[in-house]
Design a protein around this nucleic acid. Structure first.
Length: 505
DNA sequence: CTACCACGACTATAGACAGCATGTC
DNA sequence: CTATAGTCGTGGTAG
């Protein structure tokens, strides 16, 4: 079996006693390349064994992924992507900086986030799966990766390497990526979500109180300087404002006027609206102000509020799906073989989000949201990372970042429901938030209120029939210390108000 | 008849920031 | 539209 060029170059770098970064286009490739290189290496070092051990114990229950990483680390090689837990990423970055690790194969994260210089920087993949198949990487991104080559102050030069399949491709790569200019930076305001969030924030903070003052600000933005067509921008800003009003986040003085209410029916801005004086006052509603403070996409806020308003029964899956189906979540494409399981789950649940028509583009997102919600459901059913990795192919680091997002949205949901007087929904969100934080079943909620008690310890207490604050109070210190460690047991007793306790014998 | 292999069809694909107030295994 | 690795199913062949 021939050794792939990227692996060969990496091995050569090791022979030179230098370090290399290899950039690839998927997490799976990053893992494979690191493994392929590790397989070619015979020697071992105690430092590497130590790293491997640390990577393994990054999670309380190591997953297959941890084992795989450890295997690479034992040869001084690592992979790096967002599926790793923060602790593992840090471990790898530090070890690379210290020179212990010699090769990292990584997804583009590494090029942007942290400052990790290497002698060689190998960009193996110049295409990535995007809309409509494999698309070339932006020049800007590739040059960002090249920028990791060379260690200022330590070496005179660095090497940026691409891999071409043919002479023609080689010339192409040189022209676009080495000698070409990076593409122009495109203003983020061009996208709807950012635009409406920005418009609401301007109105909510009082920086703008009319279409004229909004335009005054927009005309000075990078977006305006880039697109120049102020008339078109004005239309988009007006459309965004109109939507915000429809959603109840802002109020314009003419809101009682028939012209704008008619526009709602039609679903776009009528000519009459465009004619209305630019100086008509626009004010935020209290709800709109809070949405802006939360920095939440107004569409997501509306989606969440409508979902709760529709609800007859609140279930964990229904609420979680409402959040994961919002515009604040990136919905993965569920895999074909997961569909059946998701369909069954959806069928047996009280969903709050509306089901889009089958085969519409929204439907994929809807199912993707169901996948995330299903994963969360397992998480709050106390399933561990390994089983989630097996069932959904979602890696520990990704579980974590999804949970972070869900935590934020549960907080937002709680706030929105509180403000709009949906007390039950607010309480439910708060409860789910605690369960999501700890990954625990509902029955453990009382125990989770204690400091130093997470889902593992809470479960141990529960199994020992200590299930409420009262039970904790009634249990003896010795009894608790037999289950948990003595320091935690003592702290627990303190928390139920038993101060002057004697140290454990 | 079964175990095994070669091969083609099919599937899947990077990343991560917002509030708030501190302590998980 | 462009790639590539892993999985799964099929069909053929050797034993």
């Amino acid at each position: 079996m021939p050794i792939p060029p990227a692996v060969e170059i990496a091995l050569d770098t090791i022979n030179m006693r230098k370090q290399a970064l290899i950039f690839v286009n998927s997490k799976r490739s990053a893992e494979k390349v690191a493994e392929d290189i590790a397989k070619q290496i015979k020697d071992t070092q105690p430092e590497w064994e130590l790293l491997a051990a640390q990577a393994l114990k990054a999670l309380s229950r190591p997953t297959k992924q941890c084992a795989r990483l450890a295997l690479c680390l034992r040869k001084g090689v690592a992979y790096h992507h967002a599926g790793l837990v923060h602790k593992q990423r840090e471990l790898i970055e530090d070890a690379f900086r210290a020179g212990t690790i010699r090769i990292i194969s990584a997804t583009p994260t590494l090029a942007f986030g942290m400052d990790l210089p290497a002698f060689r920087c190998i960009v193996r993949d110049l295409r990535r799966f995007g809309q409509g198949g494999m698309v070339p990487l932006p020049v800007l991104e590739v040059q960002q990766m090249f920028g990791r080559a060379g260690r200022p102050g330590k070496e005179d030069y660095g090497e940026a390497i691409c891999i071409a399949g043919s002479e023609a491709e080689k010339q192409d790569i040189i022209d676009t990526y080495f000698n070409g200019l990076p593409e122009e930076i495109i203003s983020k305001l061009a996208n709807e979500k950012t635009l409406r969030t920005y418009v609401l924030s301007l109105i909510a903070t009082g920086f703008a109180n009319s279409h004229a003052s909004l335009m005054d600000i927009f005309s000075k933005t990078f977006y305006a300087s880039q697109f120049k067509d102020l008339g078109r921008i004005g239309q988009r800003v007006a459309a965004a404002t109109e939507q915000l009003e429809e959603w109840g986040f802002v109020q314009s003085e003419e809101s009682s006027n028939t012209s704008s209410s008619r526009a709602k029916d039609i679903g776009f801005i009528s000519a009459a609206d465009l004619d209305k004086p630019d100086t008509a006052r626009i004010r935020p509603t209290p709800l709109g102000r809070r949405v802006a403070e939360l920095y939440l996409d107004p569409l997501a806020a509306r989606h969440i509020l409508d979902g709760f308003a529709r609800a007859t029964i609140l279930s964990p899956f229904g609420v979680l799906h409402l959040l994961t189906s919002s515009s604040e979540f990136f919905q993965p494409r569920p895999r074909a073989k997961e569909m059946e399981m998701l369909d069954a789950l959806i069928l047996g649940s009280d969903l709050l989000a509306l089901e889009p028509p089958l085969y519409s583009p929204d439907y994929t997102a809807f199912m993707g949201a169901a996948k995330l919600a299903a994963m969360f459901l397992d998480w709050i059913d106390e399933q561990d990372e390994e089983s989630i990795l097996d069932k959904y192919s979602i890696r520990p680091g990704e579980i974590y970042s999804h949970r972070l997002q869900a935590d934020w949205l549960l907080y937002c949901a709680n706030e929105l429901c509180r403000i709009t007087g949906q007390a039950k929904a607010a309480t439910y969100s708060a409860m789910l938030r605690v369960r999501m934080k700890h990954g625990a079943r509902e029955e453990l909620l009382a125990l989770l209120k204690f400091r130093d008690i997470g889902r593992v310890r809470a479960r141990m207490l529960w199994n020992a029939n200590i299930r409420s604050v009262g039970d904790v109070r009634r249990a003896s210190l010795g009894q608790l210390a037999a289950l948990l460690n003595p320091a935690v047991a003592r702290s627990l007793k303190e928390q139920v108000g038993e101060k002057g306790q004697q140290p454990i014998q």
